[in-house]
Amino acid sequence: MEETLTFVTLTLAATLRVATPLVLCAMGGLFSEKSGIIDVGLEGKMLMAAFFAAATASLTGSAWAGVVAAIVAAEALALLHGFACITHRGNQVVSGIALNILAAGLTVVLGTAWFARGGQTPPLNDGERLKPIFFPVAGDNVLVYVALLSVPFTWWLIARTRFGLRLRAVGEMPLAVDAAGVSVAWLRYRAVLLCGLFSGLAGAYLSIAQNAGFSRDMTAGQGFIALAAIIFGKWRPFPAFGACLVFGLLDAVAIRLQGVKVPGIGEVPVQLIQALPYLLTLFLLAGFIGNAVAPKAAGVPYEKEH
């Protein structure tokens, strides 16, 4: 009995640990997508942030400096995305892909040049990391709580404020926002910057809270899982949060199920569980489980005729 309880507790704690970067990233992506800017570059922003967090923490000895550096790095990519997609009306998917590839390359290039460890940053000691606050076993560092708070915050901002109303409008019909005398570009830039902030925190969590340092490609598709969570949550904060938890749970369970024979089913391939978030999203997108309707103007550059 006690054993089961421990197992459940540990699994839940692990779920929360795994879900934290997904939640942060999904909330960031939500702002961007709600404003009509598709962001397939969450992965790249998170990776870049993770690298700069670890590099800065290692060089300064301060975890908080790492967090700031992570945000700055993610914001830089976010602004580049905005510059390409909002100012220059470039293709949003192309821009996102470019940033992902750029981040995958640049983190290793800079890491190798600065630390000569094959793209890794030096391992961080405890002082250079964000430490658990209440429960050492659970790994409840400050970013876990930030992630939990980010969900109601995102909901409140989108549903209850002037900014949120305009944000939703600009993602559905930018022309209406423009005709109302509100700047479409500035609204979308703010959304993209919020996205940078949250994906920066997600990256910092990976390299200086969950792990002790950066390693190449350490995001391993989590940015895309966050994107899947947004779609699964139908572009709404709380359902997206739920999807992140489910995906986190799958991951936590996958690790525990490795090599274990489940009674009645036999051994469940770990790869299947790992691919489940993507498969579930595909089923959703195919319309087999409900219907996911994206903001209408998502992906369409706003062009004012002059």
Partner: peptide
Amino acid sequence: HFMLVDTF
């Protein structure tokens, strides 16, 4: 063409 947000 109306400047209305359909979903609002």
